[in-house]
């Protein structure tokens, strides 16, 4: 228990690090971390019902394009667009979920992979709306209460707030009756259903929630980066999110947070050794899988066996 507070302290200290080190580039990396943490958490939510989703990058893309286009084409206020983009991703999940989630395990993972590829293809090919591979330029800045987000710091602060909201929401969920239901469905679905639980409805609910989080993160990303192209939302991003959950520890809500903090800056440290970047990435993953099986979070939390 006490050690969890140590982890919180370390995360809080790391969150203030950009101001200590300073520099626009450091703030950029930090902002990307605050965008990836909610995405890693959105995948974690699906893992809580025992399903591996490879659709999170697609939901991020739907949120990003949706939010940016609502503002650029329909003059929605940017902040409203961010949440509307999240709702768009959630609505997509609500429509696809009842079909997708009849299928479980490896097949669900493959299905969400195919879904991600199709969504990405739509971004590439529907050029009149999404701008194709040349993307969308000239995206305006976010603003809140009339204050325009003019520097990276503003986005970083906003990202931190969203991370905190997602983290607290998932922690409360985990401790609530719903957390108990998810755990039961994940451990033994046949038993849970024999006790009356509508497993499909609960899995769809988790899918919709995870798409909402991913979609909002996408909207923040779109307005922050100021340029959208399909290759920001490929299958490989979904893979990165899995890596963050594995490295951080998927059994805990804190795990994906630690994973994102560790994985997102990694390429920046390896910039000098560009040729070896993938190799080192792979070696790091192997080290984690072998030595710290249940992730960084086990350094701070004692997990129940099994």
């Amino acid at each position: 228990m006490r050690k969890t507070y140590l982890a919180y302290l370390i995360v809080a200290a790391l969150a203030t690090l950009p101001w200590v080190v300073g520099g626009r580039y450091v703030f950029h990396v930090a902002t990307m971390i605050t965008i990836m943490i909610p995405l890693a958490l959105s995948l974690n939510l699906m893992l809580k019902v025992g399903q591996l989703s490879l659709a999170q990058a697609a939901f991020m893309g739907i949120g990003a394009y949706g939010a940016v286009l609502l503002t650029m084409r329909l003059d929605f206020p940017p902040m409203l667009s961010v949440f509307a983009g999240g709702l768009l991703a959630a609505a997509t999940a609500a429509i696809c979920g009842p079909v997708f989630l009849r299928i479980k395990g490896v097949y669900f993972a493959l299905l969400t992979f195919a879904f991600g590829q199709i969504v990405n293809l739509v971004f590439q090919e529907w050029t009149s709306l999404f701008g194709g591979n040349s993307g969308i330029y000239g995206i305006p800045k976010l603003s809140v209460f009339g204050m325009r987000f003019s520097t990276t710091q503003h986005y970083y602060l906003f990202g931190l707030v969203f991370c905190a909201v997602c983290y607290v929401a998932l922690r409360l969920l985990e401790r609530s009756e719903i957390g108990r239901i998810f755990q039961a469905l994940k451990e033994d679905e046949t038993l849970s259903r024999s006790l009356g639980s509508n497993a499909l409805a609960w899995r769809v609910a988790a899918f919709v929630g995870s798409a909402l989080i991913a979609g909002i993160a996408g909207g923040i990303y779109g307005f922050y980066i100021g340029f959208l192209s399909p290759d920001a939302f490929t299958f490989w991003l979904s893979v990165d999110l899995i890596v963050m959950n594995v490295v951080g520890g998927a059994t805990s809500v804190l795990g994906p947070v630690l994973g994102a903090i560790f994985i997102v800056p990694l390429p920046e440290f390896l910039r000098e050794a560009r040729a070896f970047q993938l190799l080192i990435y792979g070696v790091v993953l192997i080290i984690f899988l072998v030595l710290i099986k249940d992730g960084l979070v086990t350094l701070f939390e004692r997990r129940k066996p099994g």
């Binding site: 451990e187 046949t190 639980s197 509508n198 409805a201 099994g306």
Partner: peptide
């Protein structure tokens, strides 16, 4: 129904198993 093989949540306490059964029925969907 009960099952031929033992089907309980093995890593949880008896109380937690019963709580789960209760909540699974009561909140059977979101």
């Amino acid at each position: 129904r009960t099952f031929q093989a033992v089907t309980v949540f093995k890593s949880e306490t008896v109380a937690e198993n019963l709580r789960r059964a209760n909540v699974l029925r009561r909140r059977h969907n979101p």
